[in-house]
Amino acid sequence: MKLPAVLREKGIWVVPLLIALVLWEIVAAYVVRNPALLPRFSEVIFAFYLLRHDIVPDILVSLLHFTIGLTIAFALALPLGIGMGWFRTVFKAVDPIIEILRPIPPLAWIPLAIVWFHLTHYAAGFIIFLGAFFPILIGSYTGFRDVPKVLVETGKVLGCIGHRKMIRHVAFPYALPSVATSTRVGMGVGWMSLVAAEMFGVSTSGLGYRLFNEFYYWKQMDFVMAYMLLLGLISLFLDRVFRHVVEERFFRWKKGIVK
């Protein structure tokens, strides 16, 4: 069957989405018939209404944890990335440690986080920090390491002598898109870690906390799914906003090269 041309071009994503939602509703209502096992889509939507008092405070707390973790990750990863990308010796010295720590899932750090920071916002922030730190670090040092030789030499012959000047005038602008993209990736990983961090009781409110320490225990699966949707949507929103504000605006030149 041929869909109308307009739909095919602009809104093709609507079709599978609608089919999925309708299927979900039917299966939940007539096949599973157990809202604790699979809530209906309509119940999940209604849940947003029932939760209206909690949603905004929870989002704000989660965003607070997220901001703390992300800011510290960026503040530490960028300077270290500059050092590792620009100075070969620094890279060789530090990289093995980084490569050992990096694959450890942020969640595995939770017991340590609880012991070091107790059950406070800092413990949650720490887990998010771990999630965001490594992508930003790698994107940063890659950007700084890959500065083309011809640009560095051009800088030199135009009087840009010394590491400080070179980093400031040549390396940093060149590496900025890489830093930005990796920050966006770090944001995504950090957000995912946030939910897990809050789930483990390292805070007393927030989306992940409420999902796991209330809705799960009460077995209110429609609330669980509503918050799951919310988590996904916020992540999507943050990602798109970042892309629009930072990447589109400032890095047209990179697109020009890549295209």
Binding site: P148, V150, L151, E153, T154, V170, K254
Partner: peptide
């Protein structure tokens, strides 16, 4: 001593 390279020497940003 100004220098002009063969290519890719402009700062793209």
């Amino acid at each position: 001593r100004g220098m002009v390279f063969q290519e890719f020497s402009l700062f793209p940003w």
